[in-house]
Design a protein around this nucleic acid. Structure first.
Length: 520
DNA sequence: ATAAGCACGC
DNA sequence: GACGTACGTGCTTATA
């Protein structure tokens, strides 16, 4: 452990391997760690907090994390200490002091101080707690699923080899492409991948699904082996020997937009879409019989944010009147009464609403909905007419980016768009889509981060036994001590709803269950 | 060790 | 004529 009370006064302390001795030594630093007026300046402080937490030591200092400061200043650059010292300080032993001086100025100049002091720094401790809390999984349940999957995969392999007339490695896109488009003579897609292979992604296979029964088997094989290798077999191996729980890492300085990411393992992409995928979600369970899982998720948060940011009257009134927004959109773009909206019209309208958030083209919409390009253009034309405020907002964002070189979220989190004036239309269009999406996705990230901080504070004040365990972008998951269910539900709902005031109501759905699927 | 292709989430 | 929807993580295969 290295300390520097000022830039020229550096101390290094060797940490004993033995747990008891280590704790004794670290406890002697309580005079520093419990001093609320002192600031701990470091790089990736969460690792220090987590390390000390293993010895029941909590630091009560103010925090300054250079990794996160730099993430706010330049979200898309590298934030490793190696890189920062190369760029800003040339590898000296008081590197964190030097970075502190430089970044303090930059944060101030870019109006990022509130985001840093009031949201990101408090969140460091929240994430450390969530990681340390951990999640219980039903290992026996997963083992059983794994065995059933092995049998099913073997059966599918046999069917595929029989149709192909030969055995080959189905997991190799290269070999698979040759079997499908050469041996079996299925009509090949118009163009190959950049490495000269036949593309065999899901969208490609869906287009030839009626050509040969082997195609459905391939899709089944792909989804099953994905679930087995990434989740069913991998998760049990990541259970901690210390407490029998899974401890993910939440990364606070990775995404370009301000979202968190999760790895080792990634618990933000646990399957939910398909029936077989949902079986995996069932294996996420409360830590013991005194607990129950609670999931709280924001309803349509990104669309509510675009309604707020754009001020579009039609979108605002849909949310204010508590309408199903996709049904309302369908009624508008198809020019029918709400009661006459078919499920297909609603499905298409939903795709358009999402497409707006991502900056989709008529071609993209047509591909996605399997409708003609002219039909897609018609829908988009009507959409722009019905929601003029949204089109104005999009134009305004792109114009701002072209003038200033960045866009920002509701709380001033920036994303720089250096290609926004590029002469290459491909890279320029990409930057324009980012100019539309980043403020929406990023404001949603700002909002849930505020809620997490507020919930964490309140849980600590009330000394609750329940634990916040996961964040999945618009959802928070808690392992709730059953006696606290009512008080925690109220608390979570209140803090999520009131994190940021928008021009539309915020809706939070809460459910509980004896596994993560049930809690949804 | 790294890139490509693919598939999972929001 | 090419391009065609944002943000991530991680698996297997193929290659250096």
């Amino acid at each position: 452990m290295t300390f520097a009370g000022n830039p020229n006064d550096i101390y290094k302390i060797e940490i004993p391997v033995d747990d008891e001795k280590c704790k004794n030594l670290l406890t002697k630093f309580d005079c520093i760690f419990k001093d609320k007026d002192k600031t701990i300046i470091g790089h990736n402080i969460k690792t220090i907090i987590s390390f000390l937490a293993k010895y029941d030591i909590e630091i009560e200092n103010k925090l300054w994390d250079n990794m996160i400061a730099h993430y706010l200043i330049e979200p898309e650059l590298n934030h490793s200490l190696d890189y920062l010292s190369d760029i800003y300080a040339k590898d000296s032993s008081d590197i964190n002091w030097q970075l502190y001086d430089k970044f303090k100025t930059s944060l101030s100049e870019n109006n990022l101080e509130n985001l840093f002091y009031d949201i990101e720094m408090p969140l460091v401790k929240v994430l450390a707690d969530m990681e340390s809390n951990g999640v219980k999984i039903d290992i026996e349940g997963l083992k059983q699923i794994s065995e059933e999957q092995s049998k099913e995969i073997a059966g599918i392999e046999n069917s595929i080899y029989e149709i192909a007339g030969t055995s080959f490695n189905i997991g190799s896109p290269k070999q698979l492409g040759e079997i499908l488009f050469e041996k079996l003579n299925i009509k090949a897609p118009a163009k190959k991948t950049k490495t000269g292979q036949y593309p065999t992604g899901e969208d490609v296979l869906q287009k030839i699904i009626n050509e040969n029964p082997i195609v459905q088997h391939i899709l089944d094989y792909r989804s099953l082996t994905k679930l087995k290798s990434t989740y069913v077999d991998a998760l049990p191996s990541l259970v901690s020997h210390r407490d029998g729980l899974i401890h993910t890492s939440f990364n606070q300085a990775v995404t370009a937009t301000g979202r968190l990411s999760s790895n080792n393992p990634n618990l933000q992409n646990i399957p939910v879409r398909t029936e077989k995928g949902r079986e995996i979600r069932k294996a996420f369970v409360p830590r013991d019989e005194n607990h129950i899982l609670l999931a709280a998720d924001y309803s349509q948060i990104e669309l509510r944010i675009i309604a707020h940011l754009s001020g579009d009257q039609a979108m605002l009134s849909a949310f204010r009147n508590g309408l199903d927004v996709h049904t309302d959109t369908a009624a508008r773009v198809y020019g029918v009464d709400i009661k006459d909206v078919t499920s297909e019209m609603r499905r298409n309208a939903k795709a358009v609403n999402f497409g707006i958030i991502y900056g989709m083209s008529a071609f993209g919409l047509a591909e996605r909905l399997k409708i003609s390009r002219s039909e897609a253009s018609e829908i988009i034309k009507n959409y722009k007419k019905e929601y003029p405020g949204i089109q104005e907002y999009i134009d305004k964002q792109v114009a701002f980016a072209k003038e200033y070189g960045y866009v920002e979220t509701m709380l001033g989190r920036r994303r720089y768009l250096r290609d926004i004036n590029s002469g290459n239309s491909v890279v320029r269009n990409f930057a324009e889509r980012n100019a539309i999406n980043a403020p929406i996705q990023g404001s949603s990230a700002d909002m849930i981060k505020i809620a997490m901080k507020d919930i964490h504070n309140e849980m600590k004040l009330k000394d609750l036994k329940s634990k916040m365990i996961l964040q999945v972008h618009d959802e928070l998951v808690f392992d709730v001590y059953k006696d606290e269910l009512d008080v925690l539900s109220e608390l979570v709902k209140d803090k999520m709803i009131n994190a940021l005031q928008l021009e539309v109501p915020i809706i939070v759905n809460i459910n509980t269950g004896n596994n993560w699927l049930e809690a949804h």
